[in-house]
Structures are given as C-alpha cells and as structure tokens.
Computed example of a mutant assay.
Amino acid sequence: MTDHTRVNNIAVDSSVVLDGKEIKLNYFRWKSDNNLRNDSIKIFSLSPISRRVNEVNGFALGAGHFENQNIEIQVINGLNIEASPISLALISFSINVPFESLFVGINDNAISNVAFFDDKIKTYIKINGLNVSSGGFMGGAEVRGINISIFSGMNKMNGFSVGGILNTKSFSGVSISGLANLSDNGNGVQVGISNVSRRHNGIQIGLFNNSKELRGVQFGLWNTNGRRKLPFFNWQFKNK
C-alpha cells in the first residue's frame, strides 16, 4: 500500500497555475488521521455536511449548514431540506428589519441604516437547485434555483424566492416576501410589504418601495428613488 504523506503547511487559499488552469493546493491537503482527503462527493448527506465532504449531488437533509473550517466551500447540487431548530430565533432576530424598511419610503435617509446583510461573511455553502427551510440562512450562502424559507440572509440569490424576508447582497430573479425584500444589488422583480434595494434594475411592487439607484418602475403606496418620491407609481431610468 502506498504511504501517503500529509502536507500541513499549505495555506487554504494557495494555488498554482498549470497549463493555464488554476489548481488549488488545498486539494492535496490531508485532513484526518486516516488520510481521507476533503474531496469526497456524495449522493445523500445529512446536514451539517461532514467536514470531509465538499459536494453533494442529490439530496441533503438536516438541521442546517455551518462554516466548515476544513473545506472552503461546500456545494449541493439538487435538493436541500432543513428543519432548522432556530427558526423562531430567526424571526425574533430579524423582526426589526421589516419595521425599519417600512419607513425607508418616508424617510429616505433611513436607507443607510437598514440592516443589509453583512457582506464580509464569505460564502461557505452553495446550493444549485431547490432549498426548503423552516428557518433560513444567516449568511455565507449562495442559492441558484428556488428558495423557500421563512428568513434568508445570503450573499447571493439567483432564481425564485418565496418566504417572509429575503436579505441579500446580490439578487437576480423574482422574490416574493410576506414582509420585506432587501438587497444591495437587485435585478428582477421584488414583491413584498417593503422592498428596499440600493441599486435595482427591474420592478418593485409593495406598500413601500425604495431604491437609491433605480432603472425600472415602482408600484406601491409610497415609492422613493434617486429622482423623486411619488405615491402609487414611480420610475427612474437614469441616475442623477
């Protein structure tokens, strides 16, 4: 049997370029006493996903995901279902978000204080497919596909989302939220009681809509963008 040697002094983000392709040296690191590499792929996994698994192609089921200190990013291609035990805590924690954003349409200066999600949290979980959660993410996530959750704070959402609150750094697609949609950069359609986006290309539909840099239209009780504030209908296609 070949004797494998561990390489423990390779930095997590180290890489080399061979034939024009970047290869992460972290791939060659050995992480466990029985010399298992962190490049395991599974069809089914419980969550949190094992520290030795970096990709699930199929189905993940469990209580949610947490940052893995051994693998930079874990990926789920398929279906992710979470019965999160912290769903009530998420609602309590985020209950101030919709109330703050409700008044953004009235007080334009409030947009700088709205609790946009911390973009300093690096992405550690990517889901390509369908995500269903009784709670939601608290950051460090990217979803490409369909998201159904009570509360989601994530770095990136591309696709269709439905739930109570969606709070993202980057959003593209359609989001229908019972309370609020908040994003730094939005592309698509936001539907909710309150829709707040610092930069938005598309449509906002709700009681209160606000986008500092809008390229599109707003329908709601009160609509605010970089050019004007109007009831019922507003638009902006050029920045100031």
Results as ranks from 00 to 15, higher is better:
G163L: 07
E142P: 04
G226S: 13
G145L: 03
R228V: 14
Y27N: 15
S211P: 04
Q236F: 11
L79E: 00
F137T: 13
N26Q: 13
I23Y: 15
A11L: 07
P231I: 04
N223L: 08
V143M: 03
N239D: 14
I146G: 04
S84R: 15
S149Q: 09
G105P: 04
N8D: 15
N96I: 08
S133P: 00
Q218M: 09
V104C: 02
P85W: 11
M138S: 12
L79Y: 03
G64C: 07
N167I: 12
V132F: 15
N113G: 05
K156G: 01
G20H: 07
S14T: 12
I95L: 05
S183N: 05
G20K: 10
N225S: 03
I49R: 05
S177C: 14
G220H: 05
V162W: 05
N185H: 11
H4I: 11
D119F: 05
V97H: 07
S47E: 00
M157A: 02
D13T: 10
G164I: 06
I125P: 00
Q74G: 09
S134G: 11
N38S: 08
R52M: 06
L46D: 02
N35S: 03
I106F: 09
R215Q: 09
S112R: 11
R52C: 00
N68G: 14
P98C: 04
E55I: 03
H4D: 02
N80I: 01
F93D: 12
V143F: 03
S45W: 02
I41Q: 10
N57H: 13
L207A: 11
N225Y: 05
L36Y: 09
I49A: 03
Y124G: 11
S92F: 04
S170M: 10
D119M: 04
F117A: 01
A110F: 04
K229P: 00
A89E: 08
I148G: 02
K156R: 14
I73E: 15
V16F: 13
N35H: 14
L25R: 10
L88R: 13
F237I: 15
A115Y: 02
G20M: 09
G58H: 10
G216H: 07
R228G: 02
E22G: 06
N34S: 08
S47P: 00
K238D: 15
G173R: 07
M154S: 08
I81R: 10
S94W: 04
G216T: 03
I71N: 12
N96V: 08
R228I: 15
Q218Y: 08
